[in-house]
Design a binder for these strands. Structure first.
Lengths: 202, 202, 202, 202
DNA sequence: CGTTAATCGAGACGGTACGTCGTGTCTTGTG
DNA sequence: CACAAGACACGACGTACCGTCTCGATTAACG
C-alpha cells in the first residue's frame, strides 16, 4: 500500500494503452469537491470516480484510499502559505499563527486534517512522508522568523527553536479540535505568543 | 441527537417498559472492548450489541453513533489520572505530561481521541460537554501544579496559567498525531517543559 | 394455538380485571381495514393494534395470528350470502355463481381467501373449522337449489349433488386465482352451468 | 418490475461486466431447495443467495421476490407431466386428474401454488405469462383426451372442452386448498369424472 | 373497604430479515 | 495494456416487526 507506481512510467515503454494522465490530478480534485459536499463519511470511491469522470477501477489502480485522495489537497493548502515576514518578530508570529488557525478552520482542505490524523493513528503504514511534511512550509517559515530574531540578537541561543514552533502549532490545533468548538481568538493567540516568547527572548 | 433522555425518567412515569439501565453502561464498555480487538474501522454495531448482550435496536435506541459509544470510555480514562503531585514543579510537570502521552499512546481508550476529534470537527452538535471536559482532570491537575508554584513564589503573577497548560497539552497531541508516528520522547518532554517554564518562572 | 379460550369466562370466577370485550370485535375489524389499505404483506400486528386502539399484547393475548384476525371477516362475508332462490334452476345457479365470483372478486374480505388458503396449505394446525365451513352457506344454498330441482323431477337421482356444487365452486375459484386475472365472465358462467347440468339433468 | 431485461443482452453490447448467467437458474433452484427445508415463511433471501452461491445483491438485481424465485420451479413441475394417454377416456382422465392432485399435494414445487396464487391476487403486475401457462401442459393433455374422445365419436360436438377441463382442474384445487386438508380421494375423483362426463358423452 | 389478581395502554427488550449501499475484484468490449 | 461500465461476493447499515417482558394504571370480585 501507499507505494508509488510512478516508476512504471519511467521505464522504457509499458506496452499497452498508456494511462490517462488527465485522470491523475482529477481524482484528488474530485475528492475534495465531493468532500466539501458530503463530508468525510459520505466520501465514496464511487462518487469520486463519477465526479472525476473515471471508472472505479481507475481510482483503485492508482491505489487511492480515501486518505491518499486528499493528502495531496492538504499539501497543496500548506503550500499556499503566503505570509511574508515583515521582520517584526511579534507581528510575524501573530500573522503566521493566525493564518494557520484560519486555514485549518475555514479552508475545505484544512478541515480534513483531523480525519487524516485519525486515520494515521493506528495505521503505521499511513503515508508518513505526507504527515511528516504537511506542516513543513508553515513550520519552516515560523522557525525562520525565530532564526531571524536570533540573528537580530533578540532570541536566546540555547533554545530549540523547532520545539518552540511546535508549541505554537500544538496549541492552535488543540484548541481547534479539542477546544469545544472555540478556536483561539486573536487575543488568545497573542497571549500564547507572549507566553512562548517569555522563555525565548533574551 | 445527543439530547439527554434522562428527564423522562425523572418525570412521573414515562409509560411503557422502562429502559434497561444495565445496558446503558454495558454498551460503551463493549464498544471499547471490540475496539481494542477490531480497530475503529472494524467496529460494528452488531459486534458491540452482541458483546453487550443487547439487540441492535437497543443500541440504536440510545442514539449511539460509533463516537458516542466511546465518549464515556474516554472520560473514564481521564478520570483515571492518578499522578500525585510531589511538590517539585519540574518533576510534577514531567510526570504528568508523560502520563498524558502514555495514556493517549497506549490505552485503548486513549487511541480513540483522534477519532472523536475528527467526528467533532464537522459536527457542531457533537456532545460538546464531553469534548469540553475530557482533558479537565489532567488540565486542572497541571494548572494546580503551576498555581502551587506561584504560591511558592516560583511563578510569575502575570501569566495565564491555563494557557500555559494548553501549550504543553497541545505539543503532546501535535507530536502524537501529526508527528510522523514519533511521539515526544522523555527528553523532548523535558525540553518542552524547559521552554514553557522559561516564560513562566520568575 | 388456535384453541378457544372462551372457557375461562364460562368458568366460575375469572378474578382480576375482566377482558375488554369492546376490543374483541374491534381487532378483526381493524385487521380488515388495514388490510384494505396496506395489503396482506403490509398487515402487521402493530398496525392492527393501533387501529383497534389496543396494545400489541392485547392482540396476542387473544392469540390472533394474521390469519385468525381475518378468518372471522371471511365467515361474515359468506354469511352475507343473500341470493333468494327464485325456483328456476338455471336462473338460481347463475345468480348464485355470479354472487360467489363477485364476492371473492370485489369484497375486501373476499380477496383474503387466497391468502388464507396459502396459509392453510402448509399448516395442518390451521383452524380447520373455519376452512371447513367458509363456503357452507353458499354450498348449502346451491345444493338446495339442486335438491329442489330433484324434487321437481328435473335432476337425476344418482348424482352426488354436493360434488356437483364443488365443480361449480372450483371452476369459479380456478379462474379467479389461476386464470391470468380474467375471472369467469357471465357468459362463461352460463357455459359452465350448461356443462354441469348436462350430466345432472334427466 | 417483472420487466424482461434480456433485450439489453440481445442489443449490441450492454457494456459493463455481463450478468452471470449461471446464477439465473441457480437462484430458483436454490429457492425451492430452501423452501423444502424451511417452508415458505422461513424462506429468506439470505439463505437462497447462500445456497445459490451468490450474493444478496445478485438476487435483488434479478428483481426476484419470493414468488418470482419459484415461478420457474412450478413451470418445471408442470412440464414434468408425463401421463401417456392410453386411449381409454375414463382411464386417461382418471390418471391425469390423479397426477394433478398428487403433484400439487406432494411435490415441493406443487405446494407453492397457493402462495403464488395469493401473491398474484391483488398484484395485477404479477408475471401473468407464468400464471397463464402453468397449467397448460396438463390442460392441453386433458383436452387432447377429450378431443380424441370426440374423434372416436364418444363426445358431443357442442361442448366447450376447455371449459370442461377447467371444471376438473377446479374441483381438484378447491378440495386441495379449501377442503379442510382432505384432498379428493381416488373414489371422489372417479365421481367427479362421472359427473363431468355425464354432460359430455353422447 | 382494602386486598388481590388479571387486564389494559404503552413501549423497551433480544432477535432477525429486510432492501440499500459501499467495498475491492472481476470481466466484458473498445481504444 | 488502460480505460468505462457495471456485475460480482461480501458484509455493514439503519429500519421495521416479531413475540415477550415489564412498567403504572385500571377494574373487578373476594375477604
Amino acid at each position: 500500500m501507499y507505494e508509488a507506481r510512478e516508476d512504471r512510467h519511467a521505464a522504457s515503454s509499458p506496452i499497452g494503452r498508456p494511462r490517462n494522465h488527465r485522470a491523475d490530478p482529477a481524482i484528488p480534485r474530485a475528492a475534495v469537491t465531493v468532500l466539501g459536499e458530503s463530508g468525510f463519511q459520505g466520501l465514496t470511491v464511487e462518487q469520486v470516480a463519477r465526479r472525476a469522470g473515471a471508472g472505479r477501477a481507475t481510482v483503485y489502480r492508482r491505489r487511492h484510499t480515501k486518505e491518499e485522495m486528499i493528502i495531496g489537497a492538504l499539501d497543496a493548502l500548506m503550500a499556499d502559505f503566503d505570509v511574508e515576514p515583515s521582520g517584526d518578530l511579534h507581528e510575524d508570529l501573530f500573522a503566521m499563527t493566525r493564518w494557520l488557525r484560519d486555514a485549518l478552520l475555514n479552508a475545505p482542505e484544512g478541515r480534513l486534517l483531523p480525519h487524516l490524523a485519525a486515520q494515521a493513528a493506528g495505521d503505521p503504514n499511513f503515508p508518513s512522508s505526507h504527515m511528516d511534511t504537511w506542516v513543513c512550509p508553515w513550520h519552516d517559515a515560523v522557525e525562520a522568523v525565530f532564526v531571524r530574531g536570533r540573528t537580530d540578537g533578540l532570541v536566546r541561543q540555547d533554545v530549540n527553536l523547532s520545539a518552540v514552533v511546535d508549541l505554537l502549532a500544538g496549541v492552535v490545533i488543540l484548541r481547534l479540535y479539542l477546544g469545544h468548538g472555540k478556536p483561539l481568538t486573536d487575543e488568545q493567540i497573542q497571549e500564547m505568543i507572549e507566553a512562548v516568547l517569555g522563555g525565548v527572548l533574551l
